[in-house]
Design a binder for these strands. Sequence first.
DNA 1: ATACCATTGACCGAAATGGTCAATACGAAT
DNA 2: ATTCGTATTGACCATTTCGGTCAATGGTAT
Lengths: 213, 213
Amino acid sequence: MEEILKNMEEDKKNRIINSALEEFSKNSFEKASTNNIVKKAGISKGLLFHYFNSKHELFHKLEEYVIHLITNTIRKQMDWSGSDLVERFKQISLIKIKLMNHYPYIYDFSLELLKKGSIEELKGRYEEDFADLMVKVYQENIDYTLFKEGIDLQKVVRIIQWTLEKIGEESFEKLKQSGERIDLEMLQKDVEDYLDILKKAFYKVQNEEESHD
Amino acid sequence: MEEILKNMEEDKKNRIINSALEEFSKNSFEKASTNNIVKKAGISKGLLFHYFNSKHELFHKLEEYVIHLITNTIRKQMDWSGSDLVERFKQISLIKIKLMNHYPYIYDFSLELLKKGSIEELKGRYEEDFADLMVKVYQENIDYTLFKEGIDLQKVVRIIQWTLEKIGEESFEKLKQSGERIDLEMLQKDVEDYLDILKKAFYKVQNEEESHD
DNA sequence: ATACCATTGACCGAAATGGTCAATACGAAT
DNA sequence: ATTCGTATTGACCATTTCGGTCAATGGTAT
């Protein structure tokens, strides 16, 4: 994707990527229309097929690009030194939402990929990539003794993840309806509020002194 | 819907409803195909247009039917006497999932309705209906002093709702992939486990004596 | 002026679209 | 058996849309 469009001006490139992401997110592969994609991207039909020889290749290159972008961004922008799982989740969710400001449909698109699977050859590769990253997120240097004892750790972790996912989904709905960019500061505050509640609920009681005024 | 198909044998009626729900859930109205609907329902094209004069009418009657079915089922099957909000949520979520066993795509379909809106005339009517029901759920006879003091009640309630929604979405994914009906007993156990965790986290500490062996 | 790549949009045959309708199948009543 | 009426069929229609092609054009650097 990057190599294919490397000489194209940034703005046009983004329009193509975003238009394709939107069309493939809203429709199944078969019903997604290349006519719609070029119309929304503001380019001619010929140009799209000049760069991507077929609808299949476009989709294939797009999913490759998206998987690579998401996993690499997380890998690079995360602070891997901390041992607090919730903080790690928070970082991931903020990274995703920042990506969404640039590529509004990237999250929806990647969710569809994970649900429906994709071209087999690629699927193996990126699922492995994702799986590796997730193992790293959950296990590398994480201190699980922060959680209260006697609770179902697996379920609690899922509650926390689900909450973050829902916050993300809500932001996306807002973005779609208003068209304005997401207010990252407000969102960060929101995420932190929710995670504070969840930490207070599921982490061992902390030293009150540290948070004293 | 019910009146239109009243003389039809139950099985064929369900096949039509479920096929239409599926097609309209997976595709936007425009891209949904009446050819697909009749194929999956196992009926002829002519028959569908004999009962519903147009694709628009089919969709319209379908949404009317679904909204009515969901709200009425909740209204009737709920135990409105309790004052525990979490228990009320639990009931709603189990009712929804039971409906999903009969109409697998009813939940997806209704979500799309709420997101995208629908035909204007109907929209006003059923949104009001939904809103009324929700007010009843949240306010009629609910004891909010069960929650711990000093927490952000609104956010806590949303965490609980989101958790139930995610459990429902997961059940639906399983249903789609396996095709088997949902094991309601296992699911109920699951819902209760999660809600126990959330209650312990957000409700005031209860008398331990009652749960003593 | 020449060479070269980016870009266009009219055009293609094929497929799918929502909807129609004359023809049947079939059970009940006579 | 025959008639009647309704439930149901599927071939058929005009129209649109599909993915993809390609000769032509524009613009830029040499």
